[in-house]
């Protein structure tokens, strides 16, 4: 149930071969810069750049599209309100509500800059395996304990996800049909409780097994990541694009 949806077969793209630290730093800088954008042309430049980076990453098209559509749910929700909530020149009216040009402009900027960030993040995730992300975070000074927690959580999420499917199937075989009633909520609570109990016991067993094999609280790295010229090049391109965005933004 839980896999890395954007991973595909992990094509050996240019992005894939970059150092994870470069990619984390790059996507951090890009996300925060894009979140600051206030006008449409600048948001457009950021969006086009993110789109081309996504093409470079070559994620599986179908699943990527589905995830990006889902990510836009919140943006779509804001479209219901934003055009009517900003004062300005009225474009059209729905009952007592007046949609303004300014409101639609705000919503448009927001949509484009949000999607620029979605696309860029999708490219990052599609080109970086979870283990590399953990390694990159550690390389960038995130505390070891937090990185271990992240890695264990990912590992257990896969197991607990299986556990969830298994218990739910067992319930379905016994004619459990979720409806809006206390019976449903009660049994879903049992499902969650059982997931916790089984997960907890499994967690302890895994821990004991790891301690037997010499685990002392940190997961050692097999290969030391190294910064190459391609990393400098990638960060250089990103810097240039951000300069263009700032110039367009004015």
């Amino acid at each position: 149930m839980i896999d890395e949806p954007l991973a595909g077969e992990r094509k050996q793209t240019f992005l894939y071969r970059l150092d994870p630290r470069t990619k984390i730093l790059g996507s951090l800088v890009f996300s925060f810069s894009a979140a600051l954008i206030q006008n449409l042309p600048a948001a457009g430049v950021a969006f086009l750049f993110a789109l081309s980076v996504l093409f470079l990453a070559q994620p599986p098209p179908g699943r990527t599209a589905a995830l990006l559509a889902a990510a836009n749910g919140f943006v779509l929700f804001l479209w219901v309100f934003l055009p009517f909530s900003v004062p300005g020149e009225t474009l059209f009216a729905v009952g007592p509500f007046h949609a303004t040009r300014e409101g639609i402009d705000r919503a448009l900027v927001l949509t484009v800059r949000s999607n620029a960030i979605f696309f860029f993040t999708a490219a990052f995730v599609a080109s970086t395996p979870m283990a590399a992300i953990a390694r990159g975070l550690e390389g960038l000074g995130v505390p070891e304990k937090l990185v271990s927690l992240f890695f264990f959580t990912y590992r257990y999420a896969v197991e607990i996800g299986k556990e969830y499917t298994r218990i739910l199937n067992a319930m379905r075989i016994r004619c459990f049909r979720p409806r809006t009633n206390f019976h449903t909520y009660r049994h879903l609570a049992f499902l969650v409780g059982m997931m916790l109990v089984n997960g907890y016991e499994r967690g302890l067993r895994v821990r004991s097994a790891m301690v037997c094999r010499g685990f002392r609280g940190r997961i050692p790295l097999l290969e030391a990541p190294s910064v190459k010229t391609s990393d400098a090049f990638a960060l250089g391109v990103l810097a240039c694009v951000l300069v263009v965005v700032v110039t367009v933004h004015g």
Partner: peptide, 14 residues
Amino acid sequence: IPKVAVLSSAFFVA
């Protein structure tokens, strides 16, 4: 860490 990780992954699955 393993205990917190189990619960945080359960939170994720929930």
